[in-house]
Nucleic acid binder design. Sequence first.
DNA 1: GAATGTGAAAATATTCACAGCG
DNA 2: CGCTGTGAATATTTTCACATTC
Lengths: 227, 227
Amino acid sequence: MPPTVRRIPRPTAQRLSLYLREIQPLIAQGQPTLSSRELGEKLGLSSAQVRKDLAWVVQSRQASEAGRAGVGYNCVKMNESIRRVIGANRRWSTVLVGVGNIGRALLAYGGFAQDGFLISAIFDANPRMEGKRIGTLKVQPTSALRKAIRTHRVAIGILAVPRSAAQSVATQLCDAGIRGILNFAPMRISVTEGVSVTNIDVSVALEQLSMDVSIRDQMRLISEGAA
Amino acid sequence: MPPTVRRIPRPTAQRLSLYLREIQPLIAQGQPTLSSRELGEKLGLSSAQVRKDLAWVVQSRQASEAGRAGVGYNCVKMNESIRRVIGANRRWSTVLVGVGNIGRALLAYGGFAQDGFLISAIFDANPRMEGKRIGTLKVQPTSALRKAIRTHRVAIGILAVPRSAAQSVATQLCDAGIRGILNFAPMRISVTEGVSVTNIDVSVALEQLSMDVSIRDQMRLISEGAA
DNA sequence: GAATGTGAAAATATTCACAGCG
DNA sequence: CGCTGTGAATATTTTCACATTC
């Protein structure tokens, strides 16, 4: 047995998604290859970093589709390899719970299909929404979650309900056998062991941003003081 | 001069926002103190990690408001100290560009005010929206950005326009003197040197989540195979 | 006893730098 | 030459473990 196959590092995994975002438009406009330096420049990363990351893609599968010295990486092949490694090559069936503004924004944005994510059914905890049609889908009560998740083999639930309903719906999703939850509610949710959660919290993002701005301000003051 | 004051580490900064989210409800329900172990358990972190992070808060300001051995950290004071360190103690004036579904969701969510973020003015690139009132604010054309940013001393722009308009609006924000942009458009935007950007990209989040789910699946298969 | 604060050790992640290919 | 792939060197982050305080 080889010296224990290490798992793909978190930071690498995160960057791979970003690489996909950069590569895809290039493919669309027909660019055949891309060097680690070019890709790195677009994202503010060193070329060595990019090469190390892409080396993971090649190694983690036994695939041999590597870059070519003197040329760079084949865009199409690299796109496909990355998608396989991060599990974005298959289609993911999802359910959306909550058809308020966020939910409707997600439904209106057609871009997920291209990334392999399909919203199979939509739900709302509010009975007044029941039966309403949005696009091609009819809003169902959350009591129908279990059945929908089983029949569509849904792995991912998108939680776009108000904070007050979030934990209750999260529990229903877990009970119905969901495997991962994308949580838009501005709170941490508790889930069954084995269920993955990714949070999108605007306040956290704003705080991160304001901190960056603060730090830049301080540095500016210092350098101006020194000048 | 002390041996060069190191800047607060990125991962620490990110976790500090999460600590705030946990501490605030505890304050509301009157809990006086919190131990590093308790806080860590809520977030799946080691107590040592929490203590190291909080040590930064105490050190990075010369403040002496530390935890107390045998007791834990004073919730109220820790909340305030963290907010000061990450720049969330002051009020941030923001502008929102794009009053589609995402923009309206942000306006409808009242929780930012509590975190010190105020949406001072709203804009839309679509002239048909001009003059429309949403809540207490009137939609302005993006040509009015510069003036609004100057008069309200706005540091942060929230970019919630469709992909096709994102770069153009980002450029307008930069020209108008914005300091940071929270970008909801599913693309990387180019900005003037010195402007910070934080992206909220649902596809990236979904990919991250699906990758976690995939990895769990693989581990499950392996352990079942071994059993 | 229960907890903090913190050096020292371990683990991770990034950058360097260069051999070798196209 | 330009660029990949990768060990070795750094740098950063996390964990350990324990003296110290309440």
